[in-house]
Amino acid sequence: MELLDRYFEAVRKHLPWKQQDDLLAELRANLEEQLEDKESALGRPMTGEEAEAWVKQLGSPMQMAARYQPQQYLIGPALFPIYRLVMRTALLWFTVIYVVVGVIQAAGSEYPGSALLRAAGRLPLQLLGFAAFITLSFAVAEFVAMRFSKKLPPGLPEWSPGSLPPLEGKLSGPKPRTRTQVIGGLVFSIIGLAFWLLLPIYPYLLLGLGAAYPKQIPFEFAPVCWTFYWWVAATSALQIVWRGVELALGLWPHTAGINRVAFAALALIPQSIMLFAPGHTYFTLRSTADSAQYAGTLFSLNHGVHVAFCVIVAITVLQLLGSGWQLAANARKRSMAQG
């Protein structure tokens, strides 16, 4: 029957090429025999309409072929909660960083208002690009996990009830983290560090079409900014290693408080480098010939960054003190409870 042959050819196009002949030979044998049975029951060949109705109930060629393949996801149910958490956090942080960078750029431009408006107009496209970057990363992770899951070493330790975090309210301090949050935090840190390391090479990751703009402004980063940059990279790498250790050893239900203290202390290192930068100079003029024209703007820019770091360091120190106090209080409660 010609219609059936056309159906087989259409199915073939959607089958994995290595198995096409084998799968089609089997499908053909089964369906042709079914057709013969139908026609012998009718006592005549099927009419065009009957044949069409029968082939239609077999399902579309794509559907038929898809059922011969394993279920496929771009991001599967195991990774999806982590993906959602990372996406939410990353987009929030991206927006914050974008706004800070946009304000700094605008401050150094001739028309700050229009520069800010342009930056705001570019934000949706940048967010979309960043979201695509995260989605692609997770899709690759899903592909690797599905394809090589049997070859990968056993990853996460088995869940144990003993690892459940203490009840809320018994101890003060940060809310106990779920496993999804810990994995999400780790993935977010890795993506964040990759993004941070790629920024100097591919500034359009953050600035998009505006990446050409910083080259046109009369200011450039002072050496202290690069020291800050590498310290941020190093402390982020340290956090990734620590989060990996937490996950591998199952320490995460008990380390939320320590992490807050440790990460705040780590963050103070690059922040202090900026706070105590020689002469509070974060930007310098590309050419000394511009000094007469841009000296005022440069002073305002450096002063603004210094004030911003004063505020940031103050917030971090307060967080550090608060987290340290909670950690000490919880340790006291635990030792009293143990008698």
């Binding site: 109930q57 399902g59 038929m64 059922r67 011969y68």
Partner: peptide, 11 residues
């Protein structure tokens, strides 16, 4: 049981 369910299921 539909053909498109049974035959792939066997594989």
């Amino acid at each position: 049981i539909e053909e498109s369910t049974l035959y792939p299921l066997l594989r």
